[in-house]
């Protein structure tokens, strides 16, 4: 790769996650918050995909016959659920270690998932296309969000859906998602999120609309300490999810 080639890789981020890779699948381990976070994301994805593609959300395998990309899939926590819901899944992560962990685990779980240690730009340049793209908790870790989101938009099939989830760059997010989660509650290792890398909703929407996508939904996600559960909220100041579609 020429030294000046544009890339979304931030090497220090990849190294940090590789060190944590073995922890991915331990529900009591360092990724416990992500395990806790999974149901609210899954409910949202299932509801929106089923609604958009005319499937029964309460049926088995509501994602069958859909080609899905989980970009920045990590150890495959969300990816495996997509495969179980019937999607034909490609899981991509820039960290070779994460992909090794994910492959090993999918094999133990008897799931067929096409895992690739590749970047969004590599997949887009290879001409890959998808009905659904999951872009969950990734955009705050890439070096060039505009370029990254543009490449993701390129891979969308007409009529397809893209989910983006991330953390807002607000004072409230700095207090709750960084200081609260990393320093007070110690849910996340310190340094998981850096304030200047957090992304505002308009910074997601701009590059995606340039790529021809329309925003369908924008919803906040909040943690309820009493129920020990994450739930949807109209407050999008901290964690939020956005849904985009590519017109047919």
């Amino acid at each position: 790769m020429p030294a000046d080639a544009k890339t979304t890789i931030d090497q220090s981020e990849i190294d940090r996650f590789s060190r944590l890779a073995e922890e991915w699948w331990n529900p009591k381990g360092k990724f416990k918050p992500l395990h806790k976070f999974n149901p609210v994301r899954l409910h949202y994805i299932r509801e929106k995909v089923a609604g958009h593609f005319g499937r029964d959300p309460q049926g088995e395998k509501p994602l069958r016959n859909l080609r899905l990309l989980d970009i920045g899939c990590g150890g495959g926590l969300l990816t495996e659920s997509m495969a179980r819901m019937g999607a034909e899944v490609v899981g991509a992560d820039a960290s070779e270690t994460n992909i090794k962990v994910a492959r090993l685990h999918a094999e133990q779980s008897d799931l067929t998932i096409d895992y690739r240690a590749e970047t969004a730009e590599a997949l887009a340049d290879a001409g890959e296309t998808f009905d659904v793209i999951l872009n969950m908790e990734v955009v705050e870790h890439v070096s060039d969000p505009d370029f990254f989101l543009g490449k993701c938009a390129e891979m969308m099939r007409p009529g397809g859906l893209m989910f983006v989830a991330t953390i807002n760059r607000t004072a409230k997010a700095a207090a709750l998602a960084i200081f609260g989660a990393e320093y007070v509650l110690r849910w996340l290792p310190r340094g998981t999120h850096r304030y200047e890398k957090l992304v505002r909703p308009e910074e997601i929407e701009r590059p995606l609309s340039l790529g021809g996508l329309e925003r369908l939904d924008h919803v906040g996600v909040f943690y309820s300490p009493i129920r020990d559960e994450w739930h949807r909220s109209s407050d999008t100041d901290v964690n939020y999810m956005m849904l985009f579609a590519k017109p047919k």
Binding site: P39, L42, R84, M85
Partner: peptide, 12 residues
């Protein structure tokens, strides 16, 4: 859990 694509045998 099964309909949501979760592993049905994990502690969570």
């Amino acid at each position: 859990a099964h309909r949501l694509g979760l592993d049905i045998g994990t502690l969570p």
